[in-house]
Design a protein around this nucleic acid. Sequence first.
DNA 1: TTTTTTATAGTCGTCTCGACCATTAATGGT
DNA 2: ACCATTAATGGTCGAGACGACTATAAAAAA
Lengths: 238, 238
Amino acid sequence: MEGYDKYAFEPFAVTVDLAVLTIREGRLQVLLIERGQEPYAGRWALPGGFLLPHESAGTAARRELAEETGLADVSGLHLEQLRTYSEPDRDPRMRVVSVAYTALLPDAPEPRGGGDAARARWLPYDEAGPLAFDHDRILADAHDRIGAKLEYTCIATAFCPPEFTLGELQQVYETVWGTALDRPNFRRKVLATDGFVAAVPGAARLTGGRGKPAALYRAGPATGLHPPLLRPPREGRP
Amino acid sequence: MEGYDKYAFEPFAVTVDLAVLTIREGRLQVLLIERGQEPYAGRWALPGGFLLPHESAGTAARRELAEETGLADVSGLHLEQLRTYSEPDRDPRMRVVSVAYTALLPDAPEPRGGGDAARARWLPYDEAGPLAFDHDRILADAHDRIGAKLEYTCIATAFCPPEFTLGELQQVYETVWGTALDRPNFRRKVLATDGFVAAVPGAARLTGGRGKPAALYRAGPATGLHPPLLRPPREGRP
DNA sequence: TTTTTTATAGTCGTCTCGACCATTAATGGT
DNA sequence: ACCATTAATGGTCGAGACGACTATAAAAAA
């Protein structure tokens, strides 16, 4: 922050990129848009765009999220800064520094193609082939971060609708981590963690299919998990 | 990343800011430089500077770290991106987007005033009065992040010299967290965590003052802590 | 020598967690 | 109507981790 007068500084273009994640059909899916022009024409990319002159990166991210998903109200969604990507050659045309954000959505409406005429769609995380720019890296970083934060925060509820069953919450963990969890143990842990979830008092229940109907819960006031809900250690020991 | 031709984009200045932390005299201290010019002339600020045209933020951060600390070799130091600050009014002169980094130093040489003629010094974290710009916020975020990462990573060794005692390692935790830990329990936990520390085979020992000499350890190959070393819960329950 | 200081070793009870098994309440098929 | 299936919920049991605490060892200071 020193040397304003001593050193010349280069102007950069600053953008935000969004890794918008949801769980559809039991799979982790990501919102992608198809690029219409070079470079990477025809390739899929994370949604994003330039910061407007008087916008912070967070504000720009929320604006882009609204535009790209077509949702009327994005104020309640979980939006979190991931990290900033600034490799000099990450955009072949010019110097672009991008602040990446991760957004978590509960339900998954088919995206109404955003402001641009580009196509937009959900794609399963593991099928999101090679993306444009360094977006593969950004997406992988987002997945890592979310997986880690499931352990010691309550963000799993951000993937769920306002009222959800413990089975749905468990599916979030299993889908993001790619591992199976023991249902009674998961239940015991979640209910023992103060403020994680709150039972819907009306003893309401949901009928999703067959089997005993499940009790409904809402997200609780807690944000952190103490002690954490640890991911089961990988089997293979190299 | 769409709309290059549709929307005009504003050029921004991009800087890096560094929260350089160390432990001196049993206290968490931060490297600060005194601003010589307006705005915030005479105030203390985090070191930092503009990205050079062909530099990534990480490269710029490491360069600034070397310049500011005067250390010959900063390649082994722990340097990690914290987050990006982009509020439109964070610098009264112009639009500046800053990528903040956290650096952890083992020993703490008195800083040789960097390239700029500004004064540089270590200051205890809790005495780092009001800083210039939004640097109070950045510094607090860095402290939060480091405190959290002590729980589930091995970064504590980044505060220690190449060879250290378990007592020194424990002091890192106690200083950053501001809590006392039980020595035998801390020892048991660290030694039980595979790859956290490795005993120096020569049965070497260090004489720091009185008392029984302690065995020396080096940082192990592990980076994560499974299960984590949880911070003791705060006493007051609001 | 005695006291002080710090490192290291060990104990014990509580709590958590993983791996199970059992029960309940719904659906679908015969 | 009956039974198999499915999923939620409830509970048990043993291993392990952790907090609190006591004891021993090895050095310097008094």
